[in-house]
């Protein structure tokens, strides 16, 4: 008879956590490396990212214990302690993210929020449907769609200034996301080795028990 399992760590993340995790990863990589900025595909994926982020945020309040924000509070001191323990070879299991991982999660959250928000500013909050419609009008030779909001020179100047800043922040945040992703993968590898168990499995299909 198998000994009773100890529930000290997640053996399988719940479906919402898994779907949003891989969904965000997919969108970030696709939009950073494949789609062209400002294209309908890029904007659509960005809106999809907004949905994923929203769903995960709601889930952080309404979801099961391990998925909730209360399970992984941002705590830099605990994170440092965890890293020191890791270097010293002392590892322990946490019911949710470990404190260093939790900080990573929040960094991701902020960077993703920035990317989405600046993206919205850059497109003037237009939905992908409108972006597509605008592009179609321009295709037909009607360039008026490009100078839609010309209400006054001052607001126009402010607008373009804001958009330029947004563009800068958008680029920086996107690069930050790629950097964080690399750091995240390194962290998972190191932690997996230290804990002697596969940390990726619970994010995919979970541990198979016989």
């Amino acid at each position: 008879m198998a000994p009773p399992r100890t529930k000290s760590h997640v053996t399988l993340w719940d479906p919402i956590v898994r779907i949003t995790h891989w969904g965000v990863a997919g969108v970030v990589l696709t939009n950073a490396l494949i789609t062209k900025g400002g294209s309908v595909a890029h904007v659509s994926l960005g809106w999809g990212l907004m949905a994923l982020l929203l769903l995960r945020t709601v889930w952080g309040v309404l979801g099961p214990t391990e998925a909730r924000f209360s399970a992984f509070p941002p705590n830099p001191i605990a994170a440092l302690r965890h890293l020191r323990d890791l270097v010293a070879g002392r590892v322990r299991e946490y019911p949710s993210h470990n404190p260093a991982g939790a900080l990573m999660v929040y960094a991701f959250w902020v960077a993703l929020g920035l990317v989405v928000a600046t993206g919205l500013v850059m497109t003037g909050g237009e939905t992908p449907m409108q972006v597509a419609a605008d592009k179609a009008t321009v295709e037909t030779g009607d360039w008026s769609a490009l100078i839609k909001d010309s209400e006054g020179e001052t607001s126009d100047q402010e607008d373009s200034g804001l958009r330029e800043t947004a563009e800068e922040v958008h680029d920086v945040a996107a690069n930050l996301l790629l950097f964080l992703a690399a750091l995240h993968i390194a962290g998972v590898l190191i932690e997996s080795r230290a804990l002697r168990r596969n940390l990726v499995a619970p994010m995919l299909l979970g541990e198979r028990r016989k």
Binding site: I16, A51, L55
Partner: peptide
């Protein structure tokens, strides 16, 4: 998820 995407 599909619902959320639609909602957004």
């Amino acid at each position: 998820l599909v619902q959320t995407v639609g909602m957004v």
